[in-house]
Design a protein around this nucleic acid. Structure first.
Lengths: 244, 244
DNA sequence: ACCTGAACACCGTTCAAGT
DNA sequence: ACCTGAACACCGTTCAAGT
C-alpha cells in the first residue's frame, strides 16, 4: 500500500498515472443493460459508508447491496483500495459549482462553504481524502471551475493556484476535526467540559479554567472565523495583483 | 463504528467520555518488568504504520513485532480501533512545544510548522486523525501550551480558541493533501503534468493551459503562502483585541 | 494482573468455468 | 465482455485455561 517506490511505480492506485489509465479505460467499457457500472458501484459504496462506516464496507456487503456476487465487483475495480478512491471522487460530484458573481470574496466564500457542505454530508468519507490524489473527473471539474473563476478575478495564475489550494486545505482540515466527533450531542458536550474540568489546574491551568469556553464553540462559527481571517489576509495580495 | 447514537453512547472510543475512562485506567495499571505497556504498544504500532501503512497493521503483525501472542494486546486496548486512537496520540507526543518568544506571529508560525513537521514524518497516520477526538494526553498538552501562549499574547480567551483551531485546521488540511501523494518524485510530477495536458482544452481550458504551473508548486511553499495569508488576516484582529 | 492457545465468523482476492 | 462458485490465506475478537 504505502510502501516506498523509486521510479518504476507503475500506476499506484490514486496516482496521476493510475488516473490517466482509468480515464482511458472508462471510455472502453460497454455496460450491459441492467448490469454493473462504476457509477452504480460507487453510489452504493457511498451509501453504505455513510450508513455504516468505511470499516463495515466489505466487498461482500457491497455485492449483496447491489445484488451481485461480490467477485463481480473486481471486473470494475482491481481492489478495495481502488473502490474507495473512486468513491471519493463520486462524492465530489455532489459539489454544486457556484456561479461566480459579485465581489471576488463572495465567490471564494461560496465555493468554500459548498465544499464544506458536501464533506459534512459524508463525514465518514473525509479520512479517505488521503487515499489518492484528487485527480478524478469530479475533482478536476471543481479545480477547473475554481481556477477559471480566480483568473477571471484578476489573480495571476501562480497566485490563483496558491489561493485555491490554501482554501482547500482549510476546508479539509476543518472537516477532519469535525468528522472526529466535534459535532456533539448535549451529553457529549457535557462529557468534554467534564474532561477539561477534571484536569489538574496545576498541569493544565488554561484548559482547566476555560473548560466551558472550549466547548461552547460551534463548528460553523469556527469555520467562518477562519475563513474570514484567510480571506482578510488575501485582500492586500489581491490589491497588489490587480493593481499591476 | 460510525453508527448514529442517541444519548446513551457509552464511551464510544475516541469520545470525551472514553478518554476520561482511559485516563482513570492508565493510573491503575501495574506493568510487569519486561511486560507490555500501552506506550510500548503504540510506539511499535506507529513504527509499523510508518513502514507498511495502516492497512497492513494487523493485531497479529503487531504481536509478532513485540514478541507476544496477538491476543495479549487486548489486555491493553479493547479493539484495533482503540489501538489506532492511542497511536495517534502517541505521535502527537513528538511535538516539541516551542518556547514562546518574540512577536506573536513568530510563536504561531513556529507552532504550526512544528505540527506540520510531525505530521509530515508520519503521513500514514494523518487519515487516522479523524478516528477520535484529539483529547489524549499529548493532544491536551499541546492544546494547553498553545492556549497559554495565545492568552499571554493578549488574545481574549474566545478568540484564542478560534485562532488555535483555525491554525490547526489549516495544518491538518495541508497534511491531508500532502499525504495523498503530493510529495512527488520527478516521474510522478511528469505523470501529473501529462494528465493535465491530456485534458481537452474545450472542457478544461484553465487546467490544460496551466498544466506546468499546477505541478511546479512545492508543498512547503504552498504551506507558507497559506500560513502567511492566515496570519496576515489575524493581524487586525490582534490589534483590536490588545487595544481595548 | 497478565499472558496463552484454540476457536469462530468474516474478509480480500484469485481463478477456472460458464454465457 | 461480463458474471459465478469454489477456494486460499488472512484477520479481529472471544474465552477458558494457565501463572
Amino acid at each position: 500500500m504505502t510502501t516506498v517506490r523509486d521510479e518504476t511505480d507503475f500506476a499506484e492506485p490514486g496516482s496521476a498515472l493510475w488516473w490517466q489509465e482509468r480515464y482511458a479505460e472508462r471510455s472502453r467499457r460497454r455496460p450491459r443493460p441492467g448490469g454493473l457500472t462504476l457509477d452504480r458501484i460507487t453510489a452504493a459504496a457511498l451509501e453504505l459508508i455513510d450508513r455504516d462506516g468505511t470499516e463495515s464496507l466489505s466487498m461482500r456487503a457491497l455485492g449483496d447491496h447491489l445484488e451481485v456476487r461480490h467477485t463481480s465487483l473486481y471486473r470494475h475495480v482491481a481492489s478495495r483500495e481502488e473502490l474507495l478512491i473512486e468513491t471519493v471522487d463520486h462524492m465530489l460530484g455532489e459539489i454544486r459549482l457556484p456561479t461566480p458573481e459579485g465581489h471576488w470574496r463572495a465567490g471564494l466564500e461560496a465555493g468554500a462553504r459548498e465544499f464544506r457542505r458536501v464533506l459534512a454530508a459524508h463525514p465518514a468519507v473525509v479520512p479517505l481524502l488521503t487515499t489518492g490524489q484528487l485527480l478524478g473527473p469530479h475533482a478536476l471539474r471543481a479545480r477547473e471551475h475554481a481556477l477559471g473563476q480566480l483568473l477571471g478575478q484578476g489573480w495571476r495564475p501562480r497566485t490563483a493556484v496558491h489561493v485555491y489550494l490554501t482554501l482547500t486545505h482549510f476546508v479539509i482540515g476543518a472537516a477532519v476535526l469535525d468528522a472526529g466527533g466535534a459535532a456533539r450531542t448535549p451529553s457529549q458536550r457535557a462529557a468534554m467540559t467534564g474532561l477539561f474540568a477534571s484536569l489538574s489546574p496545576r498541569t493544565h491551568p488554561f484548559v482547566h479554567r476555560n473548560a466551558e469556553l472550549l466547548n461552547s464553540l460551534d463548528g460553523d462559527e469556527e469555520f467562518e472565523f477562519g475563513l474570514g481571517a484567510l480571506l482578510g489576509g488575501l485582500e492586500p495580495l489581491h490589491r497588489e495583483e490587480t493593481a499591476s
